[in-house]
């Protein structure tokens, strides 16, 4: 198992390093502390959200609602902060909101047995609609963002942006949980073979429910990072971010077919996507290509995954027949 995991993330890490180096050869500015800072800072939101999405995708589910959740959470945090409430109170509200959305998703997926795609599409819509309704044309600007958050956005610890440290610490926790805890391993079991997971006595409903709830909570916490990073919150905050998150996970080796992948792989995937964006910018390619590259890379990653998995399956069959 350990070897397998290592093999799975190694290629993508190699690609990341190779790509970064090639891009840095083309533009020396990239290969510096400021280049590294841009990379980590720019990808911090996605890096945080992949922890949530990995929990879900390894169970062979998907959560599309995190973009709406993180957006609304950032507005809740910003609005309450500008009303004079303390940071902790605002953070707590954001997280509770995220947990609530996640719990709704989890309830419908785990106990009502509804397809997660449809459920989270629905909540994506609902939450965004409510968000627009509540926020309207309201605009939380940077001087209303809590000081701690704006400090975190503009400062670094040992040349590493604070925002990325938050995302990375969370990834460490989630990654450790998924690797070492029994309930974490259960998520993999659910994703790789559901009937077998039932037969093995895994509490599928409970695990699914709590994974969705946790994912929502992480997205709620992400609201703080979102408002810190952009210094503002408005009705379209976080719009469409779920696409980038799913892309990062899949590129980072979290199989959309469930049961495979780690948070660290997903973070490497997020870094790779961000490197490509930066490299394109550094090489003078228009910013508008970013969406194209993300989409194309996602498709390429799924295709590659398909090719690799069918190859390993073939070797398995051969081994059995020998």
């Amino acid at each position: 198992m350990r070897n397998l995991l290592r093999i799975r993330e190694l290629p993508i890490a190699v690609v990341l390093v190779a790509f970064f180096s090639i891009a840095a050869l083309g533009n020396h500015q990239l290969f510096s502390f400021s280049g590294l800072h841009d990379l980590l800072f720019g990808s911090s939101i996605i890096c945080l959200l992949v922890s949530a999405e990995t929990l879900i995708i390894v169970m062979k589910h998907i959560d599309l609602s995190i973009g709406s959740t993180i957006g609304f959470a950032s507005y809740i945090i910003g609005k309450n902060a500008s009303n004079g409430h303390g940071l902790l109170y605002c953070l707590l509200l954001g997280i509770i909101f995220g947990l609530a959305v996640g719990a709704v998703n989890g309830l419908l997926v785990a106990y009502f047995k509804l397809p997660s795609l449809v459920v989270t599409l629905g909540t994506l819509y609902l939450v965004r609609g409510l968000f627009n309704q509540v926020a309207g044309g309201d605009f939380i600007n940077s001087d209303k963002v809590p000081h701690v958050l704006s400090f975190m956005a503009s400062h670094t610890f040992a040349k590493i942006p604070y925002l990325f440290i938050v995302a990375f610490v969370l990834a460490l926790i989630v990654g450790f949980y998924m690797r070492n805890f029994r309930s974490g391993r259960d998520l993999y079991a659910i994703g790789s073979n559901l009937p077998a997971a039932y037969l093995a006595g895994i509490k599928v409903e409970k695990r699914t429910f709590w994974a969705f709830t946790a994912a929502g909570g992480i997205a709620g916490l992400g609201g703080a990072l979102l408002i810190a990073r952009f210094g503002q919150a408005q009705a379209n905050s976080g719009l469409g971010i779920e696409l980038g998150v799913v892309a990062a996970c899949v590129v980072g080796g979290v199989a959309i077919a469930g049961g495979i992948g780690t948070v660290f792989g997903a973070i490497i995937g997020a870094l790779l996507l961000q490197t490509i964006v930066l490299a394109l910018g550094a090489l003078g390619v228009s910013q508008f290509w970013q969406g194209v590259v993300n989409g194309a890379l996602l498709i390429a990653a799924i295709s590659l995954d398909k090719v690799l998995s069918s190859r390993s399956q073939r070797t398995q069959i051969m081994r059995v027949s020998e």
């Binding site: 696409l243 892309a247 959309i256 970013q290 993300n294 498709i299 295709s303």
Partner: peptide
């Protein structure tokens, strides 16, 4: 082509092409 001849999941593929096509619009 991606769904039928490469045998990929239509959900994942069309999330990808969703981003791809939208990106091309801006290009």
């Amino acid at each position: 082509f991606l769904v039928n001849y490469l045998g990929l999941q239509s959900l994942a593929v069309t999330i990808g092409t969703m981003g791809l096509f939208r990106g091309l619009c801006f290009v």
